[in-house]
Design a protein around this nucleic acid. Structure first.
Length: 467
RNA sequence: GGUGGGGUGGCGGAGUGGUUGAACGCGCCGGUCUUGAAAACCGGUAGGCCCCUCCAGGGCCUCGCGGGUUCGAAUCCCGCCCCCACCGCCA
């Protein structure tokens, strides 16, 4: 959620932000509703103030009248009753007016709230302007000794690479057919060493972020209330992407939603809390199963383990003070963690600064990390794919957008007794099985085996290779 | 699935129609004392919205949410949501 005060002060900033992101937002309507709401509120408040004043005057008088009324007879009684009614009439008239304003507000507020939730956080000025991922800007890349993504795989390794689908099938690491039978398209079953490697990656990543970088390992619900989805900024825009568990259909109080990332659970954990500044920054990591409908992606990346409905992910989240410099430092640090992890796995990767058009509603800045996947990309001269970068990580900087929605604040020395919305950031640590794609493809051998990267071996019973 | 209990300030926990936005305790902040700290004692300490350029100041809302009764509601009535406990079933 954006700050409505900030919107009032500088609507153009938000108009421009929405435009740059390519996200429709009716700022004019929102401003008009906000104006209307505030004027109704002001009117109602002054009526209320008057009402309270009158009540204080009338209360005791009425009490005395009622006392006299008890012992009164005949004409005196009638006169007293008239007087009492007269006293009551005044606040009653006010009450009617106040209720009318209530009704007017009830017409304005739902639309205002809905619109406010749709206004995206403007991208930061240093985010390159662009319409889509095509205009993203590479920041830097890294490759292990002896491999350069710019050169053909075959020329460097002496053999044509197999795609992860072929490799993993060959070693009985995955069963796509039965996965689809069980759960439909974009489903799969990990088998044997595929499941072991998957778990090895996840466990390695969790240990990595926890032991080496001090994040707190945390387990969170993946089935959450709608407010957590709205609070983290995934709703309303991403409603189509989430699986709904329709408990209301069977008489339940409310529906639940399957989360598409551990970020929802980690961030939702502290919603509606006022944190002590001394407890910040909070660094949390979770490993969770993620569910995505992939609506609108029909026909895209249909083969293999790239785009699937269910996967597991180690996610990192930082909740820090509302300080841009600090936020930016954490963003760099969280990206650095991923770079370190990918280097340890000998995976060629690059950092990509996402352009404005590739940002979601909730981030001011986003850096993707892409790993080199030999099986992706268009076919080269030999008929085999040339390889391409594939997104494996995404690091977002959100300012207080999420925490405002989640009502997550802090207080402490630097806030002068006031409460302030926290800043939040998130980044992938490792998402598998997608990350298995570069792992198996980059570590395949001429004879069709897969070398297990050294850091994963302890999690694979010491195994050095598959096949 | 059954039965019962309950949602109050940063936390715990009183409060069943009238200066109660809310006792008391904890926590936190300030002060006294102390070489320093602790303890003790004294004082302060809810959140939000609106008006106001700022400051200062003022107004309004909020005791789960929404409606109702009443001159007046945390307190009474109706509806909804949520949480907890026990029993049954079960991973």
């Amino acid at each position: 959620m954006i700050d409505l005060k900030a919107l009032r002060e500088d609507p153009d900033r938000f108009r421009e932000g929405a435009r740059l992101k390519g996200i429709p937002a009716d700022i004019d309507r929102l401003l008009a509703l906000d104006e209307r709401r505030r004027s109704l509120l002001a009117e109602q408040e002054s009526l209320r103030a008057e009402q309270k004043k009158i009540e204080k005057e009338i209360g005791p008088a009425l009490g005395r009248l009622m006392g006299r009324l008890k012992g009164a007879q005949g004409e005196e009684r009638a006169a007293l009753q008239t007087e009492a009614e007269g006293l009551r009439a005044k606040p009653a008239a006010l009450k009617e007016k106040i209720q009318a304003l209530d009704a007017a507000l009830a017409q304005v507020e739902p639309e205002l709230e809905a619109l406010a939730l749709e206004v995206p956080l403007p991208p930061d000025p240093d985010v390159p302007v662009g319409e889509s991922a095509a205009q993203n800007v590479e920041i830097r890349r890294w490759s292990p000794e002896g491999f350069d993504p710019a050169e053909p795989f075959e020329a460097q390794r002496g053999f044509a690479p197999l795609a992860h689908t072929e490799l993993m099938r060959a070693h009985a690491m995955v069963d796509f057919e039965r996965g689809v039978k069980l759960a439909g398209s974009r489903s799969y079953a990990l088998t044997g060493d595929g499941m072991r490697l998957h778990q090895a990656v996840l466990r390695y990543a969790l240990d990595f972020i926890t032991d080496r970088h001090g994040f707190s390992p945390t387990g969170v619900p993946v089935l959450v209330r709608e407010e957590a989805m709205v609070g983290t900024g995934f709703f309303p825009a991403g409603r189509d992407q989430a699986y709904r568990v329709a408990e209301t259909d069977r008489g339940g109080g409310q529906d639940l939603w399957l989360t598409g990332t551990g970020e929802v659970g980690l961030m939702g954990l502290h919603q509606d809390e006022i944190l002590d500044e001394a407890d910040l920054p909070m660094r949390l990591a979770t490993v969770s199963t993620c569910f995505r409908r992939e609506a609108g992606a029909a026909g895209k990346d249909t083969a293999g383990l790239y785009r699937i409905h269910q996967f597991d992910k180690v996610e990192q989240v930082v909740i820090c003070r509302a300080d841009e410099a600090e936020s930016r430092r954490w963003h760099r640090a969280m990206i650095g963690i991923v770079e370190e992890l990918l280097r340890s796995l000998d995976l060629p990767h690059r950092l990509v600064q996402c352009c404005t058009g590739d940002l979601g509603p909730k981030n001011a800045d986003m850096v993707d990390v892409e790993c080199w996947m030999p099986s992706r990309g268009e076919a080269g001269p030999s008929g085999a794919p040339r390889g391409d970068w594939g997104e494996t990580h995404s690091a977002s900087r959100l300012y207080d957008f999420q925490c405002r929605r989640l009502n997550m604040r802090y207080r402490g020395e630097s806030t002068g007794g006031k409460t302030v919305f926290c800043h939040s950031l998130n980044n992938t640590v490792a998402a598998s099985p997608r990350l298995l794609i570069p792992i198996v493809e980059m570590h395949q051998t001429k004879d069709g085996a897969i070398l297990v990267p050294e850091p994963l071996r302890p999690y694979m019973g010491g195994r050095e290779r598959i096949g």
